[in-house]
Amino acid sequence: MTAPRFWRKINQRYRLVGTECRTCDTAFFPPRDLCPECRRESDIAEKAFSGEGEVVTKTVVHDAISDYDAETPYTLAVVELDEGARITAQVVEGDGEVDVGDRVEACFRRVRDEGEEGIVQYGTKFERV
C-alpha cells in the first residue's frame, strides 16, 4: 500500500474512527459513506469505536503474502466490536492461544513495512483482555 493510500485512512487505522448511520443507528467499521440499508436516506457521521470486542472466528496463518511472511505463524481474527461492526485484524498473543468468544481490545502495532526503505505502516491489532 503506497504512502498516500495508507495516510488517507490514518485516523481509521490508528484510532478506529468509523462511521455510523444516524437514520438507522448502525455503526460501520471499516467506515462507509453510504448506509447499505438507508442508501439515499443515510445520515452518516464519524464515530469513534472503543476498540473492545469479541473474537467471532480466527485462524493461524502459516502461509502469508510476502509482506507478512516474517511474522508467520500469526493469529488472524474477525473481531466484533462492542458497537456492532466487525473487523479483520491480527491478534497479538503468543502461540495462537486466543479462541472464538474471547474478549479482546485494540492495541497499536506495526502492521507492515513498505520495504526496508519505505514507510512503516502502523495500525490496530488486538490482544486478549
Binding site: 500500500m1 487505522r13 471499516p30 472466528t57 480466527k58 485462524t59 496463518v61 502461509d63 502469508a64 503474502i65 507478512y68 511474522e71 500469526y74 488472524l76 481474527a77 474477525v78 473487523i87 479483520t88 485484524a89 491480527q90 502492521v111 507492515r112 505502516q121 495500525g123 491489532k125
Partner: peptide, 15 residues
C-alpha cells in the same frame, strides 16, 4: 481492510 490486516484468501476461507 482484510489484506492490510494480514488476511489473504486462504486465511479468510480458513476463518
Amino acid at each position: 481492510w482484510e489484506v492490510f490486516g494480514g488476511g489473504n484468501v486462504a486465511a479468510l476461507y480458513a476463518m
